[in-house]
Structures are given as C-alpha cells and as structure tokens.
Design a protein around this nucleic acid. Structure first.
Lengths: 344, 344
DNA sequence: CTGAAAGCGCTAACAA
DNA sequence: TTGTTAGCGCTTTCAG
C-alpha cells in the first residue's frame, strides 16, 4: 500500500476558498490592477492557505507557449559554450524562460531532432551554435524561431549575433608580426566552415598586411579540440616546415599545441609563440598563460537570448548584432629569438 | 501585414481525414496493437498527409508529467559536469526525457528555485550534484523525486550514485608513497563538505598506511576551482613548509597548482609530483599530463538518470549505486629526486 | 475494435 | 469589477 500522493491544489480550490471564480483568481495573480483590492487580498490569503502554485503546464498549453528555448551547440564538451550558456540562462530567467541545452556533435540527425522539438511543442525556439544546417531543414518552408550565435549558416539569413572573426584573426597575426615573427603557422578550424574560413582568411590578410608571403604548408586543419592541437604540431613536424609562431583558431587547439610543443622540447614562447582564439578559462590556467582573442561570451549569450525573445514576442526578425573582440596579451607570445627564427 | 501562422495540424484533423475518431488516432499511434490493421494504415496515411506531430504539451498535461528533469550542479563553470550532463542526456533521450541544467552556485536561494520548478510542473524530478540542501527544503514533508550524484546530503537519505572518495584518495596517496614520497601535501576541497571530508580522510588514511605522520601544515583548502590551486601553492609557500608531492582534491586545483609551481620555477614532476582527482579533459591537455583519479562521469550521469526514471515510473526509492574509480598514471607524478625531497 | 465524452488546469472572450 | 463559458490538444474510461 502506497501513500496516495496529495494532489497539488488547483486554482479551483483557491477560488472556492476565496469565494470567487477561477477567472478572478487568475486575474488577481496575473493582472492585480484589474481586481478590486479587497478581492485581491482574499485571493492572496486563499493562495497562501492552500499553498497553491500555478501549474505551468496548463498555463502554457492555454497560452500556446512553452517558455522554453533550446541552446544547441557544436560540442557540449567544449567549455567555451558554458559561458555562453550562462549568458543565455541569465537573460532567460529574467524573462521567465527556461533553457534546454543540446549537443549537436556535428550530426545532422541530432540537429534535426532538436529543431523538431519545437514542432512537438517542447520549446518555443532555438539558439543555434552549430556550423551546419541539415538539408532537410533548409528546404522547409516554415522554420521555427531561431537565432544564430557566432556561426554563419550560409544562405539561411537568420538573425545572428556575431563577432568579426576575420578582423580578429587579422589582429592576432598583426600582433605576431609586430613582435617580429615572419614564419607564422595557422591551425585552422574544420573546413569548409564559415567560421574556420573567416579566421583563416583573416590570418592570410594579416600576413599580407605585414608583407609576409603565405605558405600553404604552414596551415593545418583541426576540429577545434585539444587533441587536434597536438596533432597539428605533429603534422607540421612531419612536413618538416619551420615556424616561430602559431595562430590557432581556438584556445583548445592552442593549448593542445603548447602541450605537444613542450613534449617535443620546444619552449613557449622562447622557441615558438602561440596565440589562440576564444579566451576560455583554460587560457589563464596554462603556463605560460595564453595570449588570445577574447570573445565576450556572456554578452553573446545574453544578446542571443534577447534577440530570440524579441522574435518570440511577435517582433519580426531582429537585426544582426556584432559584438567586439579584443586581443589579450599574456605570456605565450613574445619576440622571436634568432635561433628558432632560423629554424634550428 | 503579417502572414497568419499556419496552425499545426491537430489530432482532430487527422481523425477527420482518416474517417475515425480522435481516440482511434491516439490509440493507433500509442498502442498500435489495439487497433485493426486496416484502420491503423488509414491513420498512418492521414498522419503523413497532414504532417501531424503530436503536441507534447497537451499530451503531458493530460498525462500529468513533463518528461523533463533538472540536473542541478554545484558550479556549471566546471567542465567536470559537462561529461556528467552528457551521460544524463543520453539516458534521458533514450527514455524520452529532456534535461534542464541548473547552476546552484552554492546558493540556497537558487537551489530552492530549481527544486520548486517541479512543484510548478516545469519538471518531474531532479538530479542533485550540490553539496548542500537548504533547511527550508529539508523540513518539507514531501520532496519531489530526487537522486543525488557524487554528493552526500547528510541526514536526507536520498537515492544516490556514488563513488568511494575515501578509498580513491587513499589509493592516490598510496601511489605517491610507493613512488617514495614522504612529504605529501593535500589541497582539499571546501570544508565542511562530505565530499571534501571523505577525500581528506582518505588522504590521511593513505598517509597512515605508509607510516607517514600527518602534518596539518601540509593541508590547504580550496573551492575545487583553478584559481584555488594557484592560491594553495602560494599558501604553502607562505607557510614555508616543504613537500615533494601534492594530492589535490580536484583536477582543476591540481592544474592550477602546476601552473603556479612552474611560475615559481619548480618543475613537475622533477621537483614536485602532482596527483589530481576527476580526470577531466584538461588532465590530458596539460604538460606533463596529470596523474589522477578517474571518475566514470558518463556512466555516473547515465546511472543517475536511470535511477531517477525508475523512481518516476512508480518504483519506490531505488538502491544506491557505487561506481568504481581508478588511478590513471600519467606524467605528473614520479619518484622524488633527492634534492627536493630534502627541501632545497 | 471503435466512438462519445469527460477532463488535465489554466486563461480570455464575452456578458452581466 | 466579476462570473460564465469555451476551449488549448491530448488520452482514457465507459459503452456499444
């Protein structure tokens, strides 16, 4: 024999106790000014007496909304997205929304499943931080409310919160060039992916700015992860190319590269300078601390959520937003020493 | 003028098209065997024709469930929880559940708010990964379905998936002792917190096992974060104590400590050996790679979710679960050199 | 095997 | 200012 669960009090019980109709209770709670003060007090008292808590589910069904949004990210293991999530969540709770986080894993199947959650009325809209958009979705006539953050979904023209990847990468390379580096390698993100492309092109532009000829052998590709950074160094070594500096398209890759360099007896920054991208917490944790491009993640998350709410509140597609990045100089990039600059 | 949004097809439209009642459509979809094959086919066809997708909200209201659970963690910035989340999410989607992640920030207020989300019918239950439980909650007569993961909420007796922190810490110290260390410092977690206490006591037990007298000066306290690891080294230095090895209660603190040690010109593992706890991705990213206690995070998350589902499916409180940890030896711990062992 | 009808708990026209 | 009433879209008795 189990205890029968005590049913939660409903609005009807409150109404009975207060001697009013359920409509009045609803109003007293949602639009207090539309109810006479005395009535309101009676309702408040009855609410307290019963311990009534409005059933969000019923409310949302009636309102045709879920007050939930999905934050779908490339790879949830990447702590980069945690700060974004925080920003999103902050803006969300302020507006009475909940946030579901989804892990896309670069998999069309999973992306599709998450996007369809709004058709199933699990959520009202999505914030997309993925580099791809399934064919099947792209040709759909009606898409759910979406805002894209830090990514470019080509041909889709969705409201976006962005950062100028090209300019930021260019600035990173300019920094290295200013320090005196001429052989600057690039660990790029996965290709072809607009974000990776932008950063790679920014790198190229930075090289051109400094009058340094580009060398394809100096560019390797990774998936933004730690392991890819290590692999990149091995790849560069296998190619037998020489370099005194590296610009990586993500901090994770930069840190992976630093580890591999050290394992190979090359010191950072004395032998090789490293500049990353993102400014994740890890950047400050490693020794030497990583010089990198700071992205205002918290603000990006907040902005994305606000754009989405705007859209959900009936405003049309809001305008795109560009947030500023900045180079933060720490210990991993320094002037080259003669020795490594000549490739010994 | 805006486009009138095209209303999503409801079960009624499908019923009309198939020439059956809504009840039959519902059955055909949920319990196909209870419907004649021919009827079922007609329904399936009508579903396809209309593009019908069941409205989860209405379904859940009717079913008195939300099919959503909340994963409430100590500190969402800690990537440790990301892997847990992955495990939880995997087990969740398999069972048709969604996962909301919450950041407790060690704040009663926030914890309370998240727990109350199940009273508001935003979620069906919670997985708690927090070290505290608000008074206000503890004295409540009816608690929502909860399972605790990796934490001990004293006096609460909630279903738990745990790990033997005491034994794991003891093994870590045994490893260091076996290597020849006698002056082993401990960077403990926040006190008093059962998890921190268990690991600290395990450290003490390990010392005793090796016949090493405990020295209170060798124990410092942190909050599990990166910065705390750095601070711990400074604290130890301020105390002027000597040590050849460190056992940290978290990888983040271990890595922070390594960074600070290096900044102070002390090499790991030549001058100081370091052992961490958790085996987060970061442990493999740093150089030298961190010797640490591996926790099966993915499995922990999955197990917690399964226990919760069991509970939600009407089973009573499921039994506790203990998952195994293991020491993974990497480069950060080695035999002491004479020099540092004597404290020079 | 299928249909009619009730109802999950709430909000919002519409009327009074 | 308040009450009556009609749903939101679904599942599930209860009859047939």
């Amino acid at each position: 024999m189990q205890d029968a669960p005590i049913a939660a009090p409903t609005i009807a019980e409150v109404a009975r106790l207060a001697g009013v109709s359920t409509a009045t209770v609803s109003r007293a709670l949602a639009q207090p000014e539309r109810v006479k003060a005395r009535t309101r007090e009676r309702v408040i008292a009855a609410v307290a007496a019963t311990g009534f808590i409005p059933n969000a589910q019923a409310r949302n069904l009636r309102l045709q909304a879920t007050r939930t949004v999905i934050l779908l990210v490339r790879d949830i293991s990447n702590p980069f997205y945690l700060e974004i999530y925080k920003g999103v969540e902050e803006a969300a709770v302020d507006a009475g929304y909940k946030v579901l986080m989804g892990d896309a894993r670069d998999d069309d199947e999973r992306i599709l499943r998450y996007v369809d959650m709004v058709r199933e009325r699990h959520a009202d809209g999505l914030i997309l931080m993925v580099g791809r958009f399934p064919e099947a979705l792209a040709k759909r006539s009606r898409l759910p409310p979406i805002v894209v953050a830090l990514e470019m979904l080509p041909g889709l023209n969705l409201p976006t919160v962005k950062v100028d990847n090209h300019a930021a990468a260019r600035a990173a390379v300019a920094h290295l060039a200013r320090l005196g580096h001429r052989r600057i390698a690039h660990i790029a993100g996965p290709m072809p992916d607009p974000m990776s492309l932008d950063r790679r092109d920014g790198y190229l532009a930075g090289l051109a700015d400094a009058g340094i000829p580009a060398d394809p052998d100096l560019v390797v590709e990774g998936d933004f992860g730690l392991a890819a950074g290590r692999a990149a160094i091995r790849m560069l070594a296998a190619r037998g190319v020489d370099y005194s500096a590296i610009f990586a398209a993500s901090d994770q890759m930069a840190v992976g590269a630093m580890g591999e360099l050290r394992a190979r007896g090359r010191n950072v920054p004395d032998d090789v300078s490293v500049v990353g991208f993102d400014d994740i917490v890890l950047a400050e944790a490693v020794e030497p601390q990583l010089t990198t491009i700071h992205q205002p993640r918290r603000e990006i998350g907040q902005a994305a959520m606000k754009l989405l709410i705007e859209q959900l509140s009936g405003g049309g597609a809001p305008p795109d937003l560009v947030l500023p990045t900045r180079l933060v100089e720490r210990g991993s990039a320094a002037a080259p020493t003669r020795r490594t600059d000549q490739g010994w």
